[in-house]
């Protein structure tokens, strides 16, 4: 993965999210989104270390993960707008983007739930003789979900090729991590005998390097790795905050958090003209995505329960 490719990914995610926020404001996206703005380096760096056969699970803040994994931005935007042409045919929305053809086993809206799903998928692949790894993304808030801790135990016991990527953005919604996590996040993983690393989550190249080592370890049959990627959420927990104006982060803190911007960090590694060309290319992609999504049909209410069962007598 080249410097330019990593830049393209973080920039694509950033601009996708900024445009999606506009579509929330204009009412084209109902229900709002959990913006990934500020955390782009993690999705970009992690997914750059994977092969097409690998699988990921994502979260409620998942647009970055699936874009980095290669989903078509047109289909993702159409999904956010609840259109039939969306990734999930408009049945999933912002918190559930899935594309099984790209190994995306779904974004999960229950905090910490996907870690055990990813662990099961990775275990199954190994049983089937496949040389794949699974990555499960989650936030610092998930570290207090018992089910996630159970998954760490299963993965370590059975040496499952799964990589646990904790995006520590400092807050579980509004709860500061210092008020929520006793001990340390990596210490919890280490307690299960899982190698755990603190990674600069603002630099895509650092994340890529750390993930590459974890992937090699998993493929070599050495089991899970845990990465705590330190990051900062530049925008709201959810777009409802834009109106609710919850008071839990000081202006100074937000300014400090935004001072290390993954798009700027990676962009600085490219010549100006090359960066401008990538930026223009992305705007064209997103213009096309907007046109595609806005022009796509809404699902037929008569098919509201289509896909509920694989088979029904």
């Amino acid at each position: 993965m080249s410097t330019a490719d990593l830049y393209r990914t973080v920039r694509l995610i950033r601009r996708f999210e900024e445009r999606a926020i506009e579509f929330v404001r204009s009412g084209e996206i109902v229900g709002g989104i959990h913006p990934y703005v500020g955390q782009e380096a993690i999705a970009a760096g992690v997914c750059a270390a994977l092969t097409p056969d690998d699988v990921i699970t994502s979260t409620h803040r998942g647009h970055g993960h699936v874009l980095a994994r290669g989903v078509d931005p047109r289909q993702l935007l159409a999904e956010l707008m609840g259109r039939e042409s969306g990734l999930n045919k408009g049945r999933g929305g912002s918190m559930h983007a899935a594309d099984f053809s790209l190994g995306i086993l779904g974004a999960n809206a229950i905090v910490g739930a996907a870690a055990s799903i990813a662990t099961g998928a990775a275990w199954a692949h190994r049983r089937q003789g496949r040389d794949t790894v699974a990555v499960t993304f989650f936030g610092d808030g998930a570290m207090n979900e018992g089910m996630l801790l159970e998954a760490l135990n299963l993965a370590a016991l059975w040496r499952v090729p799964v990589i646990f990527v904790c995006e520590n953005n400092g807050y579980a919604t509004t709860m500061p991590v210092e008020s929520a996590v006793a001990g340390s996040i990596t210490g919890r993983a280490e307690a299960f005998g899982i190698p755990a690393y603190i990674v600069d989550g603002q630099d895509p190249e650092t994340v890529l390097e750390a993930t590459t080592a974890a992937v090699e370890r998993a493929r070599a049959g050495e089991g899970p790795t845990f990465m705590e990627c330190m990051t900062y959420r530049f925008d709201a927990h959810h777009t409802f905050e834009h109106r609710a104006r919850l008071d839990y982060r000081s202006a100074d803190q937000v300014a400090f958090g935004r001072s290390r911007d993954p798009v700027v960090i990676q962009g600085a590694r490219l010549p100006d003209d090359e960066r401008a060309a990538v930026d223009a290319e992305i705007e064209a992609v997103l213009d096309a995505a907007a046109g595609f999504a806005l022009g796509s049909a809404h699902p037929d209410p008569a098919e509201a329960l289509k896909y509920l069962y694989a088979v029904m007598p």
């Binding site: 699988v55 870690a115 055990s116 990813a118 099961g120 692949h125 089910m147 299963l154």
Partner: peptide
């Protein structure tokens, strides 16, 4: 809880 979701993951695979 984890092994029930583990089964879901294995089923998806």
């Amino acid at each position: 809880q984890a092994f029930t979701n583990f089964a879901t993951g294995a089923a998806l695979a």
